[in-house]
Write a protein that binds this DNA or RNA. Sequence first.
DNA 1: CAATAAGTTCATTATGTAATGAACTTTATG
DNA 2: CATAAAGTTCATTACATAATGAACTTATTG
Lengths: 169, 169
Amino acid sequence: MNLLYFCFSSYLNTMTPKEKYIEDVGLLYEKYGLPKMAGRILGYLMSASTKNTSFENLQEALKASKGSISGNINLLLRQSLIEKHMISGDRKSYYKVVFTSLNNILEAKVKSIAEFKQIYERGITLVVDEHSHNYKYLSEVLEYYKFLEEEMPLLKRKWEEKIKKNETP
Amino acid sequence: MNLLYFCFSSYLNTMTPKEKYIEDVGLLYEKYGLPKMAGRILGYLMSASTKNTSFENLQEALKASKGSISGNINLLLRQSLIEKHMISGDRKSYYKVVFTSLNNILEAKVKSIAEFKQIYERGITLVVDEHSHNYKYLSEVLEYYKFLEEEMPLLKRKWEEKIKKNETP
DNA sequence: CAATAAGTTCATTATGTAATGAACTTTATG
DNA sequence: CATAAAGTTCATTACATAATGAACTTATTG
């Protein structure tokens, strides 16, 4: 993208659908706790039409510093949201979104359920009066989280079975 | 809490279990997107042994400014996480955690599922080659979100039935 | 082995969000 | 109706987190 285009596009406030998409993915992931740049990287990788996306590609497309790209790539690698692959005879690193870990989504949910469940369990030990509003409140919420904790593995299994059916019809 | 206690407790790094609890609830909610102060208010309200908690109680317990308490109370009210109640002959406002909206938890989840689903739907329109890694990736994730979107209402119903049984045994 | 490419590290700067506190509005009371 | 209590608003300050960019490491190639 050259300077002329850049000036025009920002003046007229136009973006290609792809550029818009990248920014929106960035914002969505930011909303759910990742750095915006990490989200933008995911947006670029997800909407990429070329097979191989390098560090350099990302830097140019997202117009960000090496440091930021490097840091956020490694964050995404640690969270298994992307993976690195190499091409023989080429010293660059290439990245793509991870295909396998769909259950990551549910697993993250299960984790957060466990965290809240613990907080409610602790809370209940601090409320002395068993007839109080709070005691009843905390007990019920706790029940709900226990329910969710039981149900999540069932949901996971249900998904796995559905996949199996589709693969061997 | 007097100054002497404050100096001691911070110097020795001791906190009552309740104080520790309030801070931990604050951190947990901060992690999931609420301002820390809003989380601390929830922590205080949840672990309160007294029936009525006023604005003033909160301000004293959390050692925060009126402005911060006010802003965060109203945030929590808007999100239906707490509710206000009045006492006749008393011009103060009192607050408590909301008992009813357990399904808020699931509903928030359903909303976030819808947001991600939309992002994947948009992404798929940007990837031209139907045999590419990304096309397959986005299609599968999209399937998964559709599955979750279908399952959530079922889960909700299951919970409601479980509650009904417990109420009329 | 010098030169360069690829990526990392980290001190500095920038940005966004939250808390503060003083001034203000609203409501009640003697 | 003056006074005070209860809470809100908002400009300012503080804080936490992210991005930058230059110096650095590591690997590669002519």
